[in-house]
Design a protein around this nucleic acid. Structure first.
Length: 508
RNA sequence: CGGGGCGUGGCGCAGCCUGGCAGCGCGCCUGCUUUGGGAGCAGGAAGUCGGAGGUUCAAAUCCUCUCGCCCCGACCA
């Protein structure tokens, strides 16, 4: 096949042709992860895990700056712990994996059979409020023990009916922060403070613009008093929840007996919070930035920043080209891109032009081709992932080294700006029910095209209206914006008086 | 869990209707030729056709069951 017949895009199908399939192909082509033999679970490959490590490092620093300490709690939670908070049970019971045995014995046909029955079944943590609460109940006895600010990095298991790599897997990696406070307002401040940290992570590091707001009652975390959320718009215009922070009031404190003696010598319950982000963020990066040529990584958390691709025309050139390449790598690696050393890959495979596409698909921010001609004029040939695959330019070597940090910053900014423009273009104020329904109804029912977006519409606050919209259109309230202007209008569902708009969208 | 679609070398697919040697493109390996960019030629490795059972002289193909993936629905942090 001649190169003229090659597909125009590195990923097939394209986003507009089949978004769900495109997503899977990007995950595969970029070498981030793969499905595992275990239903609903994923294997995160090095290129993908590096993203998680970078996200983790950034967040971990930000947490610690606010006084949070890391700890680790068990994977297994006694069933009775989970039973302590009624709403919590209701929310999670259906998706719990339960360990009932502790030993395997060889059966008659040689296969292994679970043998020792546990006295009390153990639940594989779907979240750790209850078991951390148990510890907190012992750690807190005086108001002087508060606030207690704890985080853990771990995996959790939620037995999902429908899974999607990175977006909803049965097992995923996350961090869960848990705090206990003597004063209600302080707990609420902490809840919002952590949401701000997530917002900073999403916008400044992942280049994912987010809306920050509160969940309606029906979308709340099971057992929470208030749930706050970050909502991002993916390229199919659906919303993805990219982080949550919960004000738990005293509900979990009562369930777990987290109480202490106040300065007034009274026995009182603590106020608690919990907050988390997960490997789902990687899904958000993919669906916000990736294009029909594959992944596009924001430099701030990219698995690696630059790939150097030596082009060796004649065996005689090899030493010169490789020396040039290694010295360039050395100088780049000696620099910092914000708090991280610039990470450089050297790809010296003999693959002609083909390897350039491999790196485009993997989403590396900057590709550098180094051939004898470049070396002769002390320059490098540079391609950026925020531009077209063939839009490459020759840059003097010294200038490249001097400006690499600025170039990465530019890419980072372009990615954020592009995503923001996309969200704004697909966010509409909608006032009539007719327009609202039209907005969320695909023209082709058989094979729905990408449609809809975020609708800013009035809601009276009534749950039955929320329910009706959900039943009719699969559209939910993503969040209630705290800083939304007071504005008189009519509820999009029932027409009753409303004082504010909320964000409606289809969601993952 | 309900409805629909799909499982054939690493990836993408044809073959199935009408049973008869398991194929194609990309990728991979070897050699030669190339070399400013998804290289060309030649050779090669790799598949118990998702799994189990059945029908048949013969099953990727027909039948039954089962597992997985995708879409829609239900549900969901």
């Amino acid at each position: 096949m001649g190169k003229d017949n090659k597909a125009e895009t590195a990923i097939t199908p394209t986003r507009s042709l089949d978004y769900a399939e495109w997503y899977q192909q990007v995950v595969r082509a970029s070498d981030l992860a793969e499905n595992s033999p275990v239903r609903g679970c994923m294997v995160i490959k090095p290129w993908g895990y590096a993203l998680w490590e970078n996200i983790r490092d950034v967040l971990d620093d930000m947490f610690k700056e606010t006084g949070v300490k890391n700890a680790y709690f068990p994977l297994f939670i006694p069933k009775r712990f989970l039973e302590r908070e009624a709403e919590h049970v209701e929310g999670f019971a259906k998706e719990c994996a339960v360990v009932t045995h502790h030993r395997l014995e060889e059966g008659p046909d040689g296969s292994l059979i679970p043998a020792g029955v546990l006295d009390e079944p153990l639940v594989v943590r779907p979240t750790s409020e209850t078991i951390i609460g148990d510890s907190f109940s012992r750690w807190v006895s005086s108001y002087r023990d508060l606030p207690l600010l704890i985080n853990q990095w771990c995996n959790v298991v939620r037995w999902e009916m429908r899974t999607r790599i990175f977006l909803r897997t049965s097992e995923f990696l996350w961090q869960e922060g848990h705090t206990a406070h003597a004063i209600r307002a302080e707990a609420m401040d902490r809840t919002l403070q952590m949401l701000d940290i997530y917002e900073k992570l999403a916008q400044d590091y992942l280049a994912v613009p987010v809306l920050k707001g509160e969940k309606s009652a029906s979308e709340r975390f099971p057992g929470a008093v208030n749930t706050f959320t970050l909502e991002a718009m993916m390229q199919d215009r659906k919303a993805l929840q990219t982080g949550t922070s919960h004000f738990l009031g005293q509900k979990f404190a009562r369930a777990s007996e987290i109480k202490y003696q106040s300065a007034e010598e009274k026995e009182v319950y603590a106020w608690t919070t919990s907050w988390g982000v997960s490997t789902r963020l990687i899904g958000a990066i993919i669906m916000t930035h990736a294009d029909d040529n594959g992944l596009v990584l924001p430099p701030m958390i990219a698995s690696s920043h630059v790939v150097l691709m030596p082009i060796i025309r004649k065996p005689a050139d090899k030493t010169t080209v490789m020396d040039f390449t290694h010295s360039l790598a050395r100088e780049l690696r000696g620099q910092y891109y914000h708090d991280r050393k610039i990470a450089v890959e050297i790809d010296d495979r003999e693959a002609h032009g083909g390897k350039g596409w491999d790196w485009i698909k993997k989403g590396i921010p900057v590709r550098v081709e180094i051939g004898p001609r470049d070396i002769a004029q002390a320059s490098v040939f540079v391609g950026r992932r925020d531009r077209g695959p063939r839009e490459k330019e020759s840059i003097p070597r010294d200038q490249f080294i001097k400006t690499i940090v600025r170039m990465l910053d530019e890419i980072q900014k372009n990615m954020f700006d592009r995503a923001l423009v996309f969200r704004e273009k697909n966010t509409k104020q909608i006032d009539s029910q007719e327009d609202f329904y039209a907005f969320f109804t695909p023209k082709n029912q058989e094979k729905p095209e990408i449609h809809g977006g975020f609708a800013l519409a009035h809601w009276c606050g009534n749950e039955t209206c929320e329910e009706k919209i959900k039943t009719d259109l699969s559209v939910t309230i993503r969040c209630i914006l705290p800083d939304a202007e007071e504005e008189t209008g009519r509820c999009i569902a029932c027409g009753d008086k409303s004082t504010r708009r909320v964000v409606f969208a289809k969601a993952y």
